[in-house]
Nucleic acid binder design. Structure first.
Length: 491
RNA sequence: GAGCCGCUAGCUCAGUAGGUAGAGCACCUGACUUUUAAUCAGGUGGUCGUUGGUUCGAUCCCAACGCGGCUCACCA
């Protein structure tokens, strides 16, 4: 027998009493016809509300109560917000008022009433009838401070959403952002698709996958780390403008900007280059910011961000020179660059290749300083096994990453569509894997076969949706923009 | 995985230089028919994260463990 808190017991007793009296505490025969937003839209601007105004039928959760014995004000919260209800004994009648007095904060009720303004001018409903729709057993957190304990906010997101309007707002915005992106993609003739989350060969990114097992097939499967290779198969198949907004899973550390499952949009556009995607990305993100915030200027964690175009562009090497303490000439020399890496405290293996070394230094000296939107280009070929080599310099690829507020937000490149080159790159990855690099790519023969049918010249991009939401809602942690972030088991 | 910090009433927080704990909100009782964190009077509520150790005595000191936060590592 579980121990029940006194406050819960009180409420359970009320429910038992209702059952005994033949009143269902969980009825399902009430249909609200209005929301708090409807009330506000109708009379929010009206000072003189006509006496014969039509009544409103509403439902919601009781969030506050100010009682006067024979009358009371309550705050009702529905999906659109809050509204005030005024319940008076001689209007609703003895019987109804007696039941009303037994209602608790957190209970869900349905009510009907006419609109009016109180002495202090607050738009309210003068209730003619009110009844319980769902009894709540758990006491709500405090009305003034709300719920601040982060662990409880993440574990019991439902409570967080009930009592913290700011949290609610973040997830409303998240939904709106995704809708804006989806509409923008569709308007630009991209086809939305879904590709496997469970893959036999986890490809499309350098990351450690989660492993699972299919019993009937007696086969190990991986949760996908990226949809990339499947989306490009679709480009081969003729769906040459596709996008997918969905989850990726990576078996890596959890941090303020990493959750094991996270949402990405990946899209592929045939007959385009990574430079076309620079323009497109600017257009897309400016559209989202403008529609969501009504502005291209906003603040993120104390930093003023502007989306005014054009956005800055720097090559990896330019960024290292700009933000690090090393000149361009030394940067080109592997040994001097390695010495610099040591000087700034990077403990890297002696055998590290130039390309990897360069990226390590870039991440250390430049990444967190890229506050305004910046496209970083000219990535080393060896760290980009799926990207097209630059025509003038095979050491680099036609790729960019977009950084905003010190975080990587997007990654894009002209796709490698030469099956011979792709096979060689996979083989190089397999060699790394055999040397113990757990994150190196697997060989994917079917993907090579697909390329052999011919993939049109294509550019593709992935945009981290969670990080975009963090940026646009000024949220410090990825857990603040994921409804149910991954946590350890409770207790 | 490592380091630092935190864990006290349903919620938000005090506190004890070691002597078994307090406030506000919520809840209960009473008053109150236009309040806005309503007000007024009275009251209930805690194995102080868990388990050990030191001590006459531990919520407090020590250790281990659990959960969370931040930083680092890995990464997007």
């Amino acid at each position: 027998m579980e121990e029940l808190h006194e406050l819960t017991l009180q409420r359970r007793r009320k429910v038992n009493k209702m059952w005994e009296e033949g009143i269902n505490p969980y009825p399902n025969d009430f249909t609200p016809r209005h929301t708090s937003a409807d009330l506000l839209a109708a009379y929010g601007e009206t000072t003189e509300i006509p006496e014969n105004a039509e009544s409103f039928v509403v439902a919601g959760r009781i969030m506050a109560r100010r009682s006067f014995g024979k009358a009371a004000f309550i705050q009702l919260q529905d999906r659109k917000g809050r509204m005030q209800l005024y319940v008076k004994k001689d209007v609703v009648g003895e019987e109804c008022f007696a039941l009303f007095e037994s209602f608790d904060l957190g209970d869900i009720v349905g009510a009907e009433g006419w609109p009016f303004r109180t002495k202090t001018g607050e738009l309210s409903l003068h209730v003619t009838a009110i009844r319980l729709l769902t009894k709540s057993f758990q006491p709500l957190p405090e009305k003034f401070h709300g719920l601040t304990d982060v662990e409880t906010r993440y574990r019991q997101r439902y409570v967080d959403l009930i009592v913290n309007p700011e949290s609610r707002d973040v997830f409303l915005k998240r939904s709106r952002i995704i809708t804006l992106i989806r509409d923008f993609m569709v308007k630009n003739d991209f086809l939305e698709v879904e590709t496997p989350m469970m893959q036999q060969i986890p490809g499309g990114a350098t990351a450690r996958p989660f492993t699972t097992h299919h019993n009937a097939l007696d086969m190990d499967l991986y949760l996908r780390i990226a949809p990339e290779l499947y989306l490009k198969r679709l480009v081969v198949g003729g769906f040459d403008r596709v996008f997918e907004i969905n989850r990726n899973f990576r078996n890596e550390g959890i941090s303020i900007r990493h959750n094991p499952e996270f949402t990405m949009m990946e899209f592929y556009r045939a007959y385009a280059t990574y430079e076309d995607l620079i323009t497109y990305t600017e257009e897309l993100l400016c559209h989202v910011a403008q529609e969501l915030l009504g502005s291209l200027e906003f603040t993120c964690q104390g930093e003023a961000i502007t989306f005014q175009r054009p956005w800055k562009r720097l090559t990896v090497k330019e960024a290292v020179v700009a933000y690090g303490d090393i000149d361009r000439k030394s940067l080109e020399d592997r040994d001097l660059l390695y010495a610099y890496a040591q000087k700034i405290g990077l403990g890297l293996p002696e055998s590290i290749s130039y390309g990897r070394l360069l990226m390590e230094v870039f991440e250390e000296v430049a990444e967190t300083k890229l506050i305004q939107p910046t496209f970083i280009t000219a990535y080393p070929t060896e760290v980009s096994p799926l990207s097209r080599k630059n025509d003038n310099d095979p050491e680099i690829v036609d790729r960019f990453e977009l950084y905003i507020a010190g975080r990587e937000l997007a990654n894009a490149f002209s796709e490698l569509n030469d099956p011979v080159d792709q096979k060689e790159r996979f083989l190089a990855q397999v060699a790394l894997k055999n040397k113990g690099d757990e994150e190196a790519h697997y060989m994917d023969e079917d993907y090579i076969r697909a390329l052999e049918y011919g993939m049109p010249p294509t550019a593709g991009e992935g945009i981290g949706i969670d990080r975009l939401v963090m940026l646009l809602t000024d949220s410090p942690s990825i857990r603040d923009v994921i409804l149910f972030p991954q946590l350890r088991k409770e207790k």
